[in-house]
Write a protein that binds this DNA or RNA. Structure first.
Ligand code: SF4
Ligand code: SF4
Lengths: 144, 144
DNA sequence: TCAATGTGGACTATAATAGTCCACATAGAG
DNA sequence: CTCTATGTGGACTATTATAGTCCACATTGA
């Protein structure tokens, strides 16, 4: 049972790729190939990242994508929540038709604590951290 | 995007119910009514909990379910993993066809850290804790 | 023997996720 | 101006996971 879904995984790889290629416009095709992501699916993901304000897009010939924020201003929690919706341990934390038992339920306090810890952890990790890790030792999801 | 699924939520409510009614066999129907869980679905859940060793079952007239372990020996992580499968932040932590990029990927170190924190938190919360919270202040998921 | 109960497996339904397609908008190059 | 490379938007399909149901059967106690 996984928490990070493919679209988020792909998003992160794409963002790392963009962060590793600053100052130019990178096409979706290039990212798709380097990061081994189905192109048309990646296009959808990039659209979402664009709407979310993480990347900018330039249409037309020689167009492409670029980071719209500094890497240190993009954290994992934001990306996850953009792609997968608000992080909620249990449905009681989702406003719309959350749990009708919530008012009298004491179990949810435990969930709340956990949720805060996870959110805290994820929001501390920035794209800059990831890029540094990649530069130091490895590859962004194995991408070249 | 929720982490705890209904089957786990139901499981926890059922376990709390059993813990609140020690020393007797509680029928699935009773739990279903008290905890507002679809009966036949609950039966499946109880079967899984039985196979998982958390509850015992007695067939026949006047049969029912009872806790097979002390409440302090049942923790949330165990229940979650029984119902939802192994907790894994990202697919790289699932052995069978996990990510083929894993060997050279540096991003997964972050996931690993998070996973360990979540697992640590969840494994510290026992059924006894939940029952005490219910006794002190509220209701187990609102159940009577 | 009967009624109350759990068991097991197959089955259906619903929803979420992943992935695809196509017509269109835009920008640059010639 | 037109052609080509690109991103955009929305509808669409496919696949998988989760939720929920059904029924024949096994077991136990009265
Ligand atoms: S019963 Fe409690 S823990 Fe469960 S979803 Fe409702 S409020 Fe949350
Ligand atoms: S690319 Fe890295 S983080 Fe992503 S699933 Fe593979 S090993 Fe895990």
């Amino acid at each position: 049972m996984e928490i990070i879904r493919r679209n988020t995984e792909y998003s992160i790889r794409a963002l790392v790729h963009l962060a590793l290629n600053p100052g130019r416009e990178v096409t979706a095709a290039e990212i798709a190939e380097a990061q081994e992501i189905p192109l048309v699916y990646l296009q959808k993901i990039l659209q979402k990242l664009t709407r979310g304000g993480f990347v900018g897009a330039q249409r037309g010939a020689h167009g492409g994508f670029y980071l719209a924020k500094d890497p240190e201003d993009i954290n994992l929690l934001e990306v996850i929540e953009l792609m997968q919706g608000k992080l909620a341990i249990n449905k009681c934390f989702l406003g719309k038709d959350g749990c009708n038992r919530a008012p009298k339920c004491v179990l949810k306090n435990n969930w709340l604590q956990l949720e805060q810890r996870i959110a805290g952890f994820l929001s501390q990790i920035t794209l800059l951290d990831l890029v540094e890790q990649v530069r130091e030792g490895g590859l962004p999801g194995g991408g070249e």
